Simulated assay, not measured.
Amino acid sequence: MLTVGSIVIRCTDLERQLMFWTAALDYEPRLPLETDFALLRPRGGAGPNVSLDAVPSERVLPPRIHLDLYADDQPAEVERLESLGAQRVHWPKRPDDADYVIMEDPEGNRFCVVDAAPGAAA
C-alpha cells in the first residue's frame, strides 16, 4: 500500500516560502530547520506533509502538477491567501461556473482553491 507522505515544492527563497505555506495551510515546520529544506506538517496531524526544497528550478507553464486546496469558504480563503502574498491567475479558458480559483504563491507556484462548501461539487 502507498500513501502520499509529502508533496515537495521547489523554491528559491526558503524563508519566504516557509512563512507563506505555514500560514496558508496552518502547518508547522519540523525542527530543527535546515538551510535548504523544510518539512511542514499539519498541526492536527492529519493530511500529507508539504516540503520546501531550496533548489532553483525553471518555472514551466502550465505546471505539470499543482495543489487543489479545498475551502469551506472559498471567497474568504482566497482573500486570506492574497493577504499572505498569493495572487490570482487569470486563465481565459476557465469556465464561468468553475468551482475553483487559480492562484500562485509568492514564487509563482500554482495552486487552486476549490469550493468545498456543503453542497458544492468538490
Rank of each mutant, 00 (worst) to 15 (best):
V55L: 07
G108P: 06
D97Q: 09
N109M: 06
R94H: 11
Y27P: 02
D73L: 09
I9E: 00
G119T: 05
L52P: 00
E34R: 15
A24P: 12
E28G: 15
R16Y: 02
D36Q: 00
M103F: 14
V60L: 13
Q87N: 09
T22R: 13
R64I: 01
T22A: 09
D97G: 04
L84K: 06
F111P: 02
A116E: 13
E34G: 15
L14M: 05
I9Y: 00
R10P: 00
T35G: 07
C11H: 00
G47T: 13
I9G: 02
F111A: 04
D26H: 07
L2W: 03
G44I: 12
N49A: 14
G108R: 11
P62W: 01
Y70M: 13
T3S: 11
D97T: 12
R59L: 04
E79A: 15
R110L: 14
G119P: 05
S83E: 09
A121I: 15
F37M: 06
L31H: 12
H66S: 00
G5Y: 06
L25E: 08
P75M: 05
E28Y: 12
V4K: 02
L81C: 08
G45T: 07
I9H: 02
L40R: 01
E58T: 07
L67D: 08
I102H: 04
E15H: 12
D53F: 12
D68F: 10
P32Y: 13
E58S: 12
W21S: 09
V50L: 15
E79R: 12
E15R: 02
V4F: 11
L25M: 15
D99A: 11
L69V: 15
L81I: 08
I102D: 01
P118H: 11
A120V: 11
D99E: 08
A54D: 01
P42S: 01
E107Q: 05
Q87H: 11
E28L: 15
E15Y: 04
V4Q: 09
D53L: 06
E77C: 06
R59E: 02
R41D: 01
A24Y: 06
R41H: 06
V60Y: 07
A98L: 07
D68M: 11
D36L: 00
G85E: 14
A86W: 05
V113Q: 07
D36I: 01
G44C: 10
L31V: 09
K93Y: 03
L69G: 05
L61Q: 05
V50Y: 07
W91Q: 13
S83P: 02
